[in-house]
Design a protein around this nucleic acid. Structure first.
Lengths: 128, 128
DNA sequence: GTTTTATTTCTACGTCACGTAGAAATTGCT
DNA sequence: AGCAATTTCTACGTGACGTAGAAATAAAAC
């Protein structure tokens, strides 16, 4: 259980971008903006979602454990449970975890990493 | 586009296990066997799928580019396009790729890797 | 070569996730 | 109390996936 739909991801991206908790309305506006400002190439044009749509998505994201909401304030405020980096890293572990041959996977993975990233990794791993 | 359904995954696991190309019938049998031998805990019991079901799944996997079939022989023979390790590594790159903050993700990822694996990674990354 | 049998392709249905949103219920404000 | 904003319920369309029968095709048998 991990994958997100297109809109779900768009919402998460917004939540991950602004570190502050946001309301459904705010998010709806930002979504409209993003969609509109997204390079004018032949894409899906500004859709201007209904607030209820955003609310539904937020609920689903909450159920998935990706979003947390403050129920106290009246326009509930939503925020991501973990940072995008954390979430992505978790995802990577999930993918890796389902493999019985973890070492082999890591080998292949490292094999196709950019030089810069390899360097980063060395740094991160430090000396034993 | 990457995730597999439950049955699709089961089939891929079989294809990845046996390195030889297999026919739909063979796979159906192996599936029945796996299902049956899977520890007897209260799970979904032996379903004994129809061959057409397996064929359908194989077609879908082919469309997704995970499976390749020899159309020459009469009972077509199917095999995985890439090894499980390769596929999993690819998946990891896919997940990582969709992040604008790759470095941060890698940091988190490394952060929660077992010591043994960290060691493996150091080895793989070679001298610094 | 025509009938029979194995194999593959087509078509289809139920379920579930997701995008989408109106209707209904809830709650805060005046 | 009455109104307006907000949230929850309910619902529909679409597409993926598990599942498989019906139809087409090809190989084998006679």
């Amino acid at each position: 259980m991990a994958s997100l739909g297109e809109l779900e991801r768009a919402v998460m991206d917004l939540l991950w971008a602004g570190q502050e908790a946001a309301t459904a309305n705010t998010l709806r506006d930002r979504l409209a903006q993003s969609t509109r400002s997204e390079d004018g190439s032949a894409g899906h044009e500004g859709k201007d979602l209904a607030v209820t749509t955003v609310l539904t998505v937020l609920s689903r994201l909450e159920r998935k454990g990706l979003v947390e909401r403050e129920r106290g304030t009246r326009p509930h405020r939503y925020q991501a449970v973990s940072s995008r980096a954390d979430h992505t890293a978790e995802l990577m572990h999930e993918v890796l975890g389902s493999a019985p041959d973890r070492e082999a996977v890591l080998a292949r993975f490292i094999g196709s990493v950019t030089d810069t990233e390899a360097e980063t990794l060395r740094k991160l791993l430090g000396r034993s």
